[in-house]
Design a protein around this nucleic acid. Structure first.
Length: 220
DNA sequence: GCCCAGGTGGGTA
DNA sequence: TACCCACATGGG
C-alpha cells in the first residue's frame, strides 16, 4: 500500500531541513499556552501575544491563574479570538489544578491515555491542541495532525481529505518511530511555511522504482 | 478591500 | 455523519 511513503517523506524532509528542535518555547507551560493561542491563527500573531505575556510577566501558570480574564485578553489580543482563548487558558489551568495538584511535572508523570482523555474533555481543547500539549509539553508519544499535515499529504495523494483526525494520526503512528513524532511534525510545518505559498512543484522519489516523480501541476 | 492562518464547539438536517 | 457558522487579529 501507500503507507511506506510516510517514512520516505520523513527521510526526504529530514535530510533537507535537519533537526528543528521543536516546540519554539522555553517551558512546557509556554508550549501549552502557545498550543491554545495558535488555534486557527498564524504563528506570527501568536508570537506577538507570547511576547506581550512575557513583557508583562504573565507567562507563568501562577500569573495566569491569578489574572482576571480581561487582563489576559489584553495581552493575547494580537492572536485573535481572545475572548475564547482567555477562557480556554483558564480552563486548562483549572484542569492542571484540579487533577494534577497544579504541577506540570506531576501531570507529565501520568499515563498517556488518561491525560489525553482529560485534555479532550476540557472545553476548548480539541485533538490538535491536546496532542501538541502531550507531545511537546509532556513528552508523550503522540503524533500531531494539523492543517499542514492534511494539505501536504493530500497533495501527495496519501490522504483523500475525508479521513478523521484519529485515522490520520493512526496512519502516521503505525508507520514511523515514536522518537520521530516531534521532528516529523516540525518538518511538516517547516515545509508548509517554506513551500506551500511559493508553489514549489511537488517532487518526490518513488520508493518502488527509485525514480523521481515530478508533477508540475501539483504543488506543495 | 479580500483572503487566509499550526482549531474548536455549537447548531441543524 | 455531514455540513454550516461564529470566533478576531494582522500580514500578504
Amino acid at each position: 500500500m501507500k503507507e511506506p511513503l510516510v517514512g520516505r517523506v520523513y527521510s526526504i524532509l529530514n535530510s533537507h531541513f535537519g533537526p528543528l528542535y521543536w516546540w519554539p518555547a522555553k517551558t512546557p507551560f509556554e508550549v501549552m499556552v502557545g498550543a491554545i493561542l495558535t488555534q486557527n491563527t498564524s504563528w506570527a500573531n501568536v508570537e506577538k501575544a507570547i511576547n506581550l505575556l512575557k513583557q508583562n510577566k504573565m507567562l507563568s501558570i501562577k500569573a495566569l491563574r491569578q489574572a482576571k480574564l480581561d487582563v489576559i485578553q489584553k495581552n493575547i489580543r494580537p492572536s485573535g479570538f481572545f475572548v475564547q482563548k482567555s477562557e480556554r487558558i483558564k480552563r486548562l489551568i483549572g484542569l492542571i489544578d484540579s487533577e494534577f495538584k497544579g504541577s506540570i511535572s506531576f501531570m507529565a508523570n501520568q499515563p498517556l491515555p488518561q491525560l489525553r482523555e482529560m485534555l479532550l474533555a476540557t472545553n476548548g481543547i480539541g485533538p490538535e491542541t491536546a496532542d501538541s500539549i502531550l507531545l511537546y509539553a509532556l513528552q508523550k508519544p503522540v503524533f500531531v495532525v494539523d492543517a499542514y499535515t492534511r494539505r501536504i499529504f493530500g497533495r501527495i495523494g496519501l490522504l483523500v481529505g475525508t479521513e478523521t483526525y484519529e485515522e490520520v494520526r493512526c496512519v502516521f503512528e503505525k508507520n514511523i518511530e515514536a522518537e520521530t513524532y516531534n521532528q516529523y511534525h516540525a518538518l511538516i510545518v517547516e515545509t508548509a511555511k517554506n513551500f506551500c505559498k511559493k508553489r514549489v512543484p511537488l517532487c518526490i522519489e518513488c520508493p518502488l522504482s527509485g525514480l523521481k516523480l515530478c508533477n508540475p501541476k501539483l504543488f506543495l
